[in-house]
Nucleic acid binder design. Structure first.
Lengths: 354, 354
DNA sequence: TTGAAAGCGCTAACAG
DNA sequence: CTGTTAGCGCTTTCAA
């Protein structure tokens, strides 16, 4: 193994000089720096991560706590994880992947054993047992998601948060539909488990949806659904029975998107002529759906990237702690159109829905 | 920060004794060990990862290289990743997540900077640039997947591999269908990009499918498809035009599963009465599909687990290097049945396919 | 602009 | 069964 001492010897300088050309923490004369750089290259030197961590008490590692609980849409998690690792690398950090199963213990381990310089925590619930540990920890942490139902409450926890502004996202959906003349809207939400767990984003979306509905005089129905065909079918059927005049749907449940479109097609309800659909989902899902969906995109990449950037800022100097909400962006595609009266019943079956 | 020296002082012993109760590498008297353990607990001591890595040249970290290339089904990757981290933890290892984008450079970094003790490499292609680095590396590595089209060729690379026996998996599908009397089978495969990249598993599956088809006198058609409704519709339509007598489909493409079922329903082809469907996919996909699918399961968890276990064995002592193929398991569900003659054409549209 | 030297916290001979 | 001690490879004062 090539050590810093080897490089120093090869270049005819002291170890500290080599260390300083690597860190750039003091000025080195041109010739010396070149000679050293040359030695580094020819010897193929790489600093030993452990030794560096011990001497500098920095690991250049970020921990990513990613629980995979029921009802979560895996591809979004993955997209965030990838954005995190990619962004981390551009800042010279590696990413340690921790599953949620270890819970608070993982937080203590990272802290106590100095395994990572900072942590990113995903899927935080209201009464998440990791939160106290995080607050007690010396290392910076940023949550992806809010541990509370409002941004103000989140700020009061003293934690650092990054998330989509789901409240505004919900409002944008209703705004869009109201502008098209829809007055009766149904919401197909996340699976019940997600709401029960107290994961803030679902509740915040609902708040935004309801506020906008009230403002526009729109009637709103909300049904949590599991992402299966059967569950979607049951919910949608019930919605149209209870409110036959429903002309628009908002879906916040990636797994339910395709089942929903298949069902509407099967029922002979054309999208968007008979019913408009707005989704809250990643752009990729919206674009590749069997009907390109008007949607507020969940900016998974941006969330992962921002989380890392904030952590890097905090590690560098005194970045302010607080909650950062990403403004929602609604893109109109083929799934929404002007409100139309409900179809006559006899025309509703056996139609070609494509 | 609490150090080993602090614990030693508190317990009235030397540092090495504390170190040895932690590692268990030499016998300690009952009373002493208890006194030390007590000090550890009351002081809340945790060994410093960096210091330990420096002194022992072991990091207790496994690197996981997980490229996310086009055409890959994300949930499977994620399931493997989770199995890897979970299994790793039970053996005392943490997992460093590396994206494929860094390619061979990441391998060199792990190696040179002693960032991890070993690596797990996913989605390996035939001419993967990481392979030479891996072979040159001093640290053990295991690939999830084969870097070649046959297990023998993979073994000759001197690398350690874990994978599903896709060749046998393909054969099992045809065996099952042949036993039900099907003689004309079509295969909907992975996206073209996957085949072009030389990812071995798709080719190996095809080999197995063809061999079994030849053995049973079954006619086989193979079509790579992208996981979109349009692509699936085009492929299936063509299949039935070219081979009207086709009574069974094999799908090896998770993203195509639901589009396929929706399409068949829409075309009025009942599953399994008119057409049988066998999938090669994770159990979860098969079980939750709108028609529960007869399938050879892709044992994502087992693959991740075995990869870690082999690495741990290799790190411990002299475990043999080689290729480990997991035997496929086919589970019969609701999507396959006896072969039936093709439907009369006039009866094929507007039916309720559910 | 460079060097010398003292650790960082832990492990593992070596000695008793 | 336990203690002493010499590093592991790097960073960072302190001196020049």
């Amino acid at each position: 193994m090539v050590t810093l001492a080897d490089v120093a010897r090869h270049a005819g300088v002291s170890a500290s000089t080599v260390s300083y050309v690597l860190s750039g923490k003091r000025s080195i004369s041109g010739p010396t720096r070149e000679r050293i750089q040359h030695s580094i290259d020819t010897l193929g030197y790489r600093p030993h991560a452990g030794a560096r961590a011990l001497a500098s008490s920095r690991t250049d590692i970020l921990a990513l706590m990613m629980p995979l609980r029921t009802g979560l849409y895996v591809p979004v998690m993955m997209e965030i994880a990838m954005a995190v690792t990619t962004t981390a690398r551009t800042h010279g950090y590696d990413v340690l992947l921790l599953t949620g199963e270890e819970g608070p213990e993982a937080v203590r381990r990272v802290e106590g054993s100095a395994v990572a310089d900072a942590m990113i925590v995903m899927d935080v619930g209201l009464d998440d047992p990791r939160i106290p540990c995080l607050q007690a920890a010396q290392r910076p942490a940023v949550l992806i998601g809010l541990p509370a139902e409002t941004a103000e409450a989140a700020d009061s926890t003293g934690l650092d948060c990054v998330d989509l502004d789901f409240e505004a996202a919900g409002a944008r959906c209703v705004d869009h539909l109201a502008a098209l003349g829809h007055t009766r809207v149904a919401v197909l939400g996340e699976p019940p488990a997600v709401y029960e767990r107290g994961t803030g984003f679902a509740a915040r979306t609902l708040t935004g949806l309801r506020a906008a509905a009230a403002a526009h005089g729109v009637g709103l129905l909300h049904r949590p659904v599991d992402g299966t065909y059967a569950a979607v079918a049951a919910a949608v059927t019930r919605v149209f029975e209870e409110r036959p005049g429903t002309t628009a749907l908002v879906v916040q449940n990636e797994a339910a998107v395709e089942p929903l479109l298949a069902l509407l097609r099967h029922q002979g309800r054309a999208v968007p002529e008979d019913v408009s659909v707005v989704a809250i989902c990643p752009d990729q899902v919206a674009v590749h759906a069997s009907v390109p969906l008007t949607a507020v995109s969940v900016p998974a990449q941006e969330m992962g990237r921002r989380a890392v950037e904030r952590l890097v800022e905090r590690l560098a100097g005194q970045a302010p702690r607080g909650t950062e909400l990403i403004a929602p962006r609604l893109t109109a595609r083929a799934s929404t159109g002007p409100a139309a009266p409900a179809l006559p019943t006899e025309d509703r079956h056996g139609r070609d829905g494509r």
